[in-house]
Design a protein around this nucleic acid. Structure first.
Lengths: 345, 345
DNA sequence: CATCATATCCAAAGCGCTTTGAAACTGAGT
DNA sequence: ACTCAGTTTCAAAGCGCTTTGGATATGATG
């Protein structure tokens, strides 16, 4: 069923039917009702491609999944972020398109998505330091929003981010206040912007407390459970092992916990742990009492906000850039405690 | 840059340029090279909407995210499945579209996606028992594939699924062989088809061994970490607690593990645990030695296969239905062991 | 040199919608 | 009865592509 057929059934022109359906004022209320009823009855839905061709807008927003060729990883926060964004897209009548691209062709994927007219705007996830894609998108003048930021990019752009630095500064300071001196950081991949910022916060807190940073206590890689386990296991073998560990994600924190268990250490007693908690729906940090002391910020909510900001940008492409910095909350759980008495060891 | 402009630059007709770019034989090799070079140079990419309008195909495949209104959950296996599918879509030149829909409007979402001509086919994830959506899609004659199956649906349809029943039967039998009699099942939501099949396998193994099923040992809900913890914690309070636990996902198994730790029980020694492992990239079951004894089946690979089957279906809509049953492998890790000596307790 | 097959290219129609510019119809005002 | 403003409807153009049915050029053939 298409517009032509529907209009013939109704004995009206395509113009009138189209206008009636799209809420234009120059069609009488009577015919509007009649048209809507018929559309309902015959299950008419305007073809989105034709509509897009005619209007020049696709009402689709694009995401690129960087299905990295080296480490075949899908960030688990991806799901929650996307779910949040999708919800808002739906509210505003947008669909959501994904394209897969390996590391080498990721720029091309964005370019293709937009130049083919497949999308009206794109979301850039997981920005690295000196993220090249930002310049690319800027040059193409695609409406876009970055989830995160990119140190080293000086042109302005829309972004939404958690204040990674301040939250890790605060978490580190919290541990220092509990008497810890040997504090480890199990971070994400160093080239990721968020990882840099978290480390900066961590280092600043150490410095303020006059504690020298120990490279042995700073590890970084893709934030998997196995990685958290391996690094913790390794650090426990050190002559002067950490008494506290900061983990950049709940997933790696679970690995940390496993390593501690295996070593017969009690989390929160022998070793304190603070995790960054993205508040994933399937991996809540406990029920009433949080399992981990954590810096918490809902990535799902970030997805919702990102979607709204992007839609706003699409609406007014030349408005001044918009940014949003979210503060993570520090929730105190049972994974932290005062530094154990050294002599008792 | 569009076809018209490009063809004017080249001094050729749109027809010829289009044909040259799409590999038709009736254009000389010389002009083909010339056209391709120009397209490259000016960064010409055919507008996908226009192309879709003209060809009648959108080269897009649709997924619906059931952003359930009650429990705001995003299944973590979602990410890996989608990544697998996306990879194949990309290979075949398809894009991937997502729509968000709450529980009530999910049928409508599928219908809309297809009837608007936005997609050429759809993927149905997480089928329930007596899944209504299958009939809907069938009736609309949309090409589709189901990830999983739906008991109670008798019309044939394409699906790809793990043999949930046999893998849980095997896992249960494995525990029975180790001497366990009190075996608990921490399952997914009962209305989900996979959960039913897993329970059926579990029950069959018990029956074959002459062990009466105990309703107290069978729990089911959304497979979160918190849920695994809560139910395990609860069952440990029973007069006759389980000596072994089957968990329907790695995530809930992590909760199981936490509950055991808290109770001072050693996994694999005091209590055996077997988990179903979807082989998620961020949540590998250990490195060399698996942490959990598990029934393993890569959901990412399932995504790839599903994509290929769907594309095949789109190509030949009236071919006989295609199905694929994957066998999970039983990997033995350190979470299982012989039943502890009762008297020693 | 006329004829025909083949290779190469093209003009124009059509995909299903929106939107412009105009027409037809109303009722009020003079 | 005639004009005018406002309301309601419409025909046709255009969005950027593919594809049909020719047209033209080329070269081989008799």
């Amino acid at each position: 069923m298409n517009l032509k057929q529907l209009s013939e059934i109704l004995g009206l022109s395509q113009t009138t039917v189209s206008r009636a359906l799209n809420g234009f004022p120059e069609v009488s209320e009577g015919t509007r009702v009649r048209v809507q009823a018929a559309a309902q009855k015959y299950g008419y839905r305007p073809n989105s491609r034709a509509k897009g061709l005619a209007t020049g807008r696709s009402m689709v927003i694009g995401h690129v999944i960087p299905s990295s060729s080296q480490h075949e990883m899908v960030n688990p926060i991806f799901g929650d972020f996307v779910a949040g964004a999708a919800k808002k897209y739906a509210e505003y009548g947008y669909d959501m398109m994904f394209t897969n691209a390996d590391d080498t062709s990721i720029e091309d994927a964005y370019r293709s998505l937009f130049q083919r007219g497949a999308v009206d705007g794109v979301v850039l996830q997981g920005p690295k330091v000196n993220e090249a894609r930002i310049a690319v998108l800027k040059r193409m003048s695609v409406p876009f929003i970055v989830h995160g930021r990119s140190t080293g990019t000086d042109t302005p752009y829309d972004w939404i981010d958690v204040n990674n630095k301040s939250s890790f500064l605060r978490a580190t300071r919290f541990l220092i206040d509990l008497g810890h001196r040997r504090i480890a950081l199990i971070n994400g991949l160093e080239e990721m912007d968020f990882a840099q910022r978290r480390r900066a916060g961590y280092l600043e807190a150490l410095e303020q407390a006059g504690i020298a940073a120990d490279p042995d206590l700073m590890r970084s890689a893709e934030m998997t459970e196995v990685f958290g386990h391996r690094e913790t296991h390794g650090m426990l073998q050190l002559d002067d092992p950490p008494t506290a560990i900061l983990a950049s994600s709940m997933i790696s924190a679970i690995g940390v916990r496993r390593a501690l268990d295996e070593a017969g250490l009690k989390m929160g007693q022998d070793v304190s742990v603070i995790a960054h908690d993205d508040d994933l729906s399937y991996l809540k940090n406990g029920q009433d009492v949080p399992i981990f002391t954590a810096t918490r910020s809902s990535v799902r909510q970030a997805g919702e906000m990102a979607a709204e900001m992007l839609i706003e940008r699409i609406k007014s492409p030349s408005a001044p850039t918009n940014t949003r910095l979210l503060e993570a909350e520090l929730v105190v759980g049972r994974s932290t405690g005062p530094v154990p008495n050294r002599t008792s060891k």
